[in-house]
Design a protein around this nucleic acid. Structure first.
Lengths: 196, 196
DNA sequence: TATAAATAAACAAACGTTCATTTATACTTG
DNA sequence: CAAGTATAAATGAACGTTTGTTTATTTATA
């Protein structure tokens, strides 16, 4: 039997991401994707059940790649400040190295597809993170607080810096470029907030 | 001459928001919007130049409504902690009272239309906020820091809590409902981070 | 040779947009 | 105050495209 051309599959993924980044979800179509990928429209339906399935798989895979990247070199038994610092660096590096995929993922996360995408991400990631936080509180390295408050303080500022960077500007259209220095300043304030 | 039916215009706006919330930007079409609004497709082209123009105006107007709401009862000469508290309450109230419009705006902000929408928001809002921060630093109420760091610490956590609330769940699919208590806990940590 | 991959061509349906026409109202005229 | 006119609002039907998806066929490999 004829073998699947993995390379072709990868081109389709890459072109899909590029197309969503450049034209948005509303400018994204199967026929345009096929043409851009140098592939027949029917081929897309060998790889994916339908358009929704393609978008869903794109989002889920990208989300998985991100959580994997975030957990590199991390384990929940690390001292709190160091564990958090590693996660910040992991996320920042991943985002800066994959700006297109990241921007695409951000669009999907905020689109009408987000429920299905989120549903597929509820794996062991939240569990590891929950364990890390619980242990830090027990050890007196972290003020007791609801997990949602923790998450909002611990990561939302970093997300926001990356968003500024991806958009190239912060509030009022002021140009902005992410740097390690800016990140460390922000992380220091976050640690200050979380310290008992 | 015949007069414009303002009510009809408003219905179109409302239905557009509902449709984008429920079906996403990729499920949003002029013909469906016309039908849902009980209006001829051609009528939409009296109100708006084309589909892009409609989406743009929707985003810009919603952004304006939000910044207006945020500044209610606020002025840059307030003591820092109080000024920030007012802004948090204003934003939270506005979001909770306009969940659909807010979710629609979030989609537009993260779509391919975001550049045009952002370009129209760079009004006096950032200026007022810049003045507020500058004064707080001079008065010793706030640690000196780049404005982007300030913004990320000061508001991103609140945005994130609201996002959890709108999605009905936080990390790992855990159900979540926003409350004044949760907000105040988070605000307290933010103020702790920002305090000199 | 068996079989899944891949295709080109086609489908109805929906798309964004326009056009010729009708409708309602503010303003002018008697 | 009533009748008539000018004009923008509003329409239903249609335009050519593009949409998502399928079908019948060809191609490459185990």
């Amino acid at each position: 039997m004829r073998t699947r051309d993995e390379n072709k599959e990868q081109i389709v993924r890459q072109k899909a991401i590029e197309m969503i980044v450049q034209e948005g979800l509303d400018g994204f179509s199967m026929q345009k994707l096929a043409k851009a990928s140098g592939v027949s429209p029917a081929t897309l339906y060998i790889y994916y059940k339908d358009k929704d399935d393609l978008i869903l798989k794109l989002g889920v895979e990208e989300g998985k790649r991100m959580s994997d990247a975030t957990l590199q070199g991390f384990n929940p038994d690390l001292p709190f400040a160091e564990g958090l610092r590693i996660q910040w660096h992991n996320r920042a590096r991943f985002w800066l190295e994959n700006p297109q995929a990241n921007y695409c993922f951000e669009q999907l996360r905020h689109s009408a597809h987000r429920d299905k995408i989120h549903a597929s991400i509820q794996d062991n990631f939240a569990e590891i993170m929950g364990k890390f936080v619980k242990k830090a509180i027990q050890n007196g390295e972290l003020s007791p607080m609801p997990i949602e408050v923790y998450w909002s303080i611990a990561f939302a500022p970093l997300y926001n810096l990356i968003r500024f960077h991806n958009e190239g500007r912060s509030m009022g259209g002021k140009p902005f470029i992410f740097s390690e220095d800016i990140m460390n300043q922000t992380l220091a304030l976050v640690l200050k907030a979380l310290k008992p």
